[in-house]
Amino acid sequence: MMDYGPFILSLKLASVTTIALFLIGIPLAYWLAFNPKKYKIFLEALVALPLVLPPTVLGFYLLLALSPENGFGSWLERYFDLRLVFTFEGLVVASVFYSLPFMIQPLQSGFRSVPFSLVEASFSLGKSRWITLRKVILPNMSAAILSACILTFAHTIGEFGVVLMVGGNIPGITQVVSISIYDEVEAMNYSLANHYSLILLVFSFLILSFVYFFNYQQRKNIRVL
């Protein structure tokens, strides 16, 4: 029997993660794009780490950090009554780390693509940094924002290792669709695993096609200018 619970959970996780990462990503990418300090390269490397690390490594350290047995996890539990291992909230925290580069890198190149003379023009018209960001910079990098959000969303839908390490496999709480597939294969329910997989495959393909289509349109528009 096909259960849509894991799909709904995956979509919910991807939505919450994308929103959280957008709020973190805008100031972080802004800082990385415009800060001339050399030490920022370490932060850039840190942000890119999830691209190369096996998800299990990230998941393992997050599990250790968030576990109530250890300092940070027990502090969260004592002061905020918040347990982050084997819970949905924990999955969000893990996904934020895991999808960080997918949000930051497109945003960072978006910030760099806006000519700095526009920023200076806005300053010369008496506008603050905040208004300049909102009214001048962000509207002129909308393609980058859209790419960043869609890639983050799609990447979160597709995650497996980190979720399994930090969230386990609890139906209705942490059992997202990628883990359901693994579960069904283990139980030899190949037909159900195929259903889940096929939906995920088509969904991911459509999302990526949309991103490429949008970028293609943008490039075409720029050529027209």
């Binding site: 000519p115 526009l118 200076e120 023009a121 300053f123 010369s124 008496g126 506008k127 001048v136």
Partner: peptide, 15 residues
């Protein structure tokens, strides 16, 4: 922002 100036660049810089 605090200087009462009008500035025009070579490259237009319209939004």
């Amino acid at each position: 922002q605090e200087r009462p100036i009008g500035l025009v660049f070579q490259e237009y810089s319209l939004f």
